[in-house]
Design a binder for these strands. Structure first.
Length: 569
RNA sequence: GUGCCUAUAGCUCAGCAGGAUAGAGUAGUCGCCUCCUAAGCGACCGAUGGGGGUUCGAGUCCCUCUGGGCACACCA
């Protein structure tokens, strides 16, 4: 497709001798379409040229030479230079691009680049609760978009399957294991054990030390500890997999923390050699005051066992060697900001190529809290993902019975709608915003929600079905799509590639979610305003075709977000 | 106490490395189905936490105050 912004900036460059890169950063898309498709504000030139912005704009306009087939009109309004694209050209560009590309917007932008994304990463033996949803769906969406843009992506589920928490669980299991039957709902029971042992640790420092000792034994491959650790791990993964199946989440690697247990020695060795590893209160630490981080990074605990920072560092070395990553992205809540700041600094001491240390990126997101406060597995205050999904699926089913009782395969549709609602809800706003979990917001399927996107898609489907044919692009008379509703859709579809680029640039899938809302709204307005199947063949062809491309983009974009589309609902 | 994040309609959120009259959804009121799915469309109502500053121009940048969140050495 023609990059109109680029084209305009090149022409302005010729007229002004300002480099086009600078110009392109000034070019904007006016909010009001009456001000054209692109605008170049000239205010910033006023000072150096000692002229009024309007005069500058007029002078630039006079020097510009444009093919009338591309730019219809250039207007000077205030200090702005407004460009109007030939609408038929824009329409033709969009329609042909969407139809000729099997998957619209797909590219090889990232060819040859490797991206590691570390996401979801739940803790073994703990319930999979709604606090884990964001990392799972944000990571999943980034995974899809990177891949779509031609990057080689490695999705890693860095399971929390190691650490003192296991020492605690082992201690609890030793004490009360007989009371529990782990054949059903094992995680709930392990969570209960975990809660109990934590309470006991609080009361009794000795118990806590025993827990730490258990972890040390686990590191030393003590037979009993390894055996029950394995048992907990297997039971947990089985439970997690159920949720991943529902959400459609996939990973290329399940190497969790334990995987790096035998790789931490090398980290310690390298750090020893730098002379930066110092003893403090019995532990081995790296001080980071020189880079403005007051809290040192602990590498070895005072009892000699490793800590998650050590294992994260080992993982960086491993991923650099194994995947040769250009970027290694960690999707976690901002609680861990300090931790990642620390290990990204310490990683610079590991003797790795700068490529790797520069490629480390922490994608953090806001906290999810319950109305009753912060979620805590220890305190037993949480909502399980499974329960939430069941609620939304049931809600979807209720609505189906109410609105479309004759629908076939209601269960399948309810599943897509209920899960779609949850996924979309988690991706629709800026990552950094904190969220107070509101079940009613999740169960609302009206307005800016996943089901709204699905509903719009289903409408395009049913229009196409009723039409019974897809017209030939060459038969479309473009003038039939010159109304504001159609043009709005065309503009949005034109911007798709740009949105995908922004998603990875800012690691912000919500851009894509907003995009889907915009496109759905634009189509709904168009649908409401126009009769698509009508008795004017030429008009009908054009509108059916526009429906066809909208359908395609809605499906593709939703798939990238991880949301499945029903055919009917 | 120190550091980081955050503050936009009653509520939930948009606002592209400062640009034209701050946009949606939801709630409330009111319209639209003999017509392609009303989980929809349209209308009304309603907002930049306080105070300074930089700029031709500030929701956006800087300072400050206030409110909220997170983190701050052997948890992850």
């Amino acid at each position: 497709m023609i990059d109109f912004k680029q084209l305009i900036s090149k022409e302005i460059e010729k007229a002004t001798n300002i480099e086009s890169e600078k110009i392109i950063s000034y070019i904007e898309i006016p909010k009001d379409t009456n001000n054209g498709d692109y605008a170049f504000p000239c205010f910033f030139l006023a000072k150096s040229l000692k002229k009024a912005p309007q005069i500058i704009a007029t002078e630039i306009k006079d020097k510009l030479e444009f093919d009338k087939k591309i730019i219809n009109k250039i207007e000077v309004v205030g200090g702005y230079l407004n460009f109007f694209i030939n609408r038929n050209l824009m329409t033709e560009q969009v329609l042909s691009k969407v139809s000729e590309q099997e998957e619209y917007g797909k590219s090889n932008l990232g060819e040859g680049k490797n991206i590691v994304i570390d996401y979801s990463s739940p803790n073994i033996a703990k319930p999979f609760h709604i606090g884990h949803l964001k990392t799972t769906v944000i990571g999943g969406a980034l995974y899809n978009v990177y891949k779509y843009l031609g990057y080689n992506v490695i999705g890693v589920n860095h399971l929390g399957d190691y650490g003192t928490q296991f020492g605690k669980l082992i201690e609890g299991y030793k004490r009360w294991g007989d009371e529990y039957d782990l054949t059903d709902d094992p995680i709930d029971k392990l969570a209960d054990i975990y809660k109990r042992i934590n309470e006991l640790c609080k009361q009794d420092e000795e118990v806590l030390n025993k827990c730490r000792e258990n972890f040390k034994l686990l590191e030393e491959k003590d037979e009993y500890c390894v055996k029950i650790w394995n048992k907990f791990r297997e039971l947990s993964i089985k439970e997690f997999q159920k949720i991943y199946d529902l959400l459609g989440t996939k990973f290329d690697s399940w190497n969790g923390e334990a995987f790096y247990a035998d790789k931490t020695d090398e980290v310690i060795e390298i750090l020893e050699k730098t002379g930066r590893l110092v003893e403090s209160e019995g532990a081995k630490i790296i001080k980071l005051d020189d880079v403005g981080i007051d809290t040192p990074c602990i590498i070895c605990k005072s009892n000699g066992s490793t800590i998650y920072a050590t294992r994260d560092l080992a993982a960086i070395i491993y991923r650099a060697r194994e995947y040769d990553f250009d970027k290694c992205i960690y999707v976690t809540s901002y609680e861990q900001n300090l931790h990642f700041k620390q290990i990204f600094e310490v990683a610079k001491l590991l003797g790795l190529d700068e490529k790797y240390t520069k490629g480390l990126e922490h994608v953090s997101y806001g906290m999810v809290r319950l109305p009753s406060g912060k979620m805590s597995t220890r305190a037993g205050n949480f909502v399980k993902i499974e329960d939430l999904l069941n609620d939304t699926i049931n809600r979807a089913k209720e609505i189906i019975f109410e609105k479309n009782p004759n629908l076939e395969n209601k269960d399948e549709v309810a599943k897509k709608v209920g899960i779609g609602a949850v996924i979309f809800n988690n991706l629709s706003s800026n990552r950094m915003k904190d969220e107070i979990f509101d079940i009613n917001a999740m169960l609302n399927f009206q307005g800016e929600t996943g089901p709204y996107i699905q509903y719009t898609y289903v409408r395009t489907k049913s229009v196409l079905e009723k039409a019974g044919y897809i017209p030939n692009l060459t038969d479309i008379v473009l003038d039939n799509l010159n109304d504001e509703y159609s043009q709005n859709i065309i503009n949005i579809i034109y911007n798709f590639e740009d949105v995908l680029r922004q998603v990875i640039e800012k690691s912000e899938p919500s851009f894509l979610a907003r995009y889907l809302i915009d496109l759905s709204k634009a189509y709904s307005a168009f649908y409401n305003e126009n009769k698509i199947i009508c008795n004017e063949k030429e008009l009908q062809d054009a509108r059916v075709y526009l429906t066809y491309v909208t359908n395609k983009v809605l499906r593709q974009a939703s798939k990238l977000l991880g949301m499945e589309m029903p055919d009917k609902m």
